[in-house]
Amino acid sequence: MNIEKAIPEDNIRLTEITKKSKAYWGYSDEQILSWSNNLTVTMLYIENNPVFKLIDKDEIVGYYSYIRQENQQVKLDNLFILPEYIGKGFGTYLMNDFLERMRIEKCQKIILDSEPNAEKFYGKIGFKKIGEFETSIKNRFMPIMELNL
């Protein structure tokens, strides 16, 4: 298992991972389709943002990406793994790589908008909920979380 910088041509595989990972939480095909624009990883996105892919046995099985902001703050924009890898330590492996990268880059604060079903995962790592916002699904709220390094 290793983590490498993604290349623009990985966009189709990363989009597939994103959609499959999101569907894992029980969202309907129609809901995933309605979110298609938000769940699509474009070549341009990979060119303009740090994106790192997790490779297991020569296959991309997950990735994360982030956006640098002002005042040594970073937004974790994506962290997705294939459903068959969820609950087996792969997400933690990705997160540890991300956190180490942030320490090297002297980042002081990380923020993220969490999938509601992943809030516990981020909480175990030390992220604290600082707010929330309602999504396109009535009565579904996305936690806004932060971690100070």
Rank of each mutant, 00 (worst) to 15 (best):
T42E: 03
L94D: 09
Q73L: 06
E105M: 08
N49M: 13
V74W: 06
L14C: 09
V61H: 03
V74C: 07
Y24Q: 11
I46R: 09
R13L: 13
G89V: 14
N78K: 13
D97K: 02
N78Y: 14
V41H: 03
I81C: 13
T92A: 08
K19R: 15
K5L: 10
E47D: 13
D56P: 00
K88M: 03
I81S: 11
K88H: 11
T42V: 02
K57Q: 14
K109G: 06
N96R: 01
R103M: 05
V51T: 14
I111P: 06
Y27K: 06
D113G: 09
L99T: 05
P116Q: 06
N38P: 02
T42M: 01
N49F: 15
V41E: 03
C107A: 09
E9M: 02
K88Y: 03
I110Q: 09
E47C: 00
V51Y: 13
D58F: 05
G91M: 12
L33E: 15
I55H: 04
E16A: 03
R103S: 11
S114M: 11
F90C: 05
L76Y: 12
L39F: 02
I7F: 02
T15F: 01
Y66E: 12
G87I: 04
E16P: 00
N78W: 02
I12S: 13
G62N: 12
R103C: 07
Q31A: 11
G89C: 02
I60M: 10
N117Q: 14
K20H: 06
F80M: 11
W35F: 04
K5T: 14
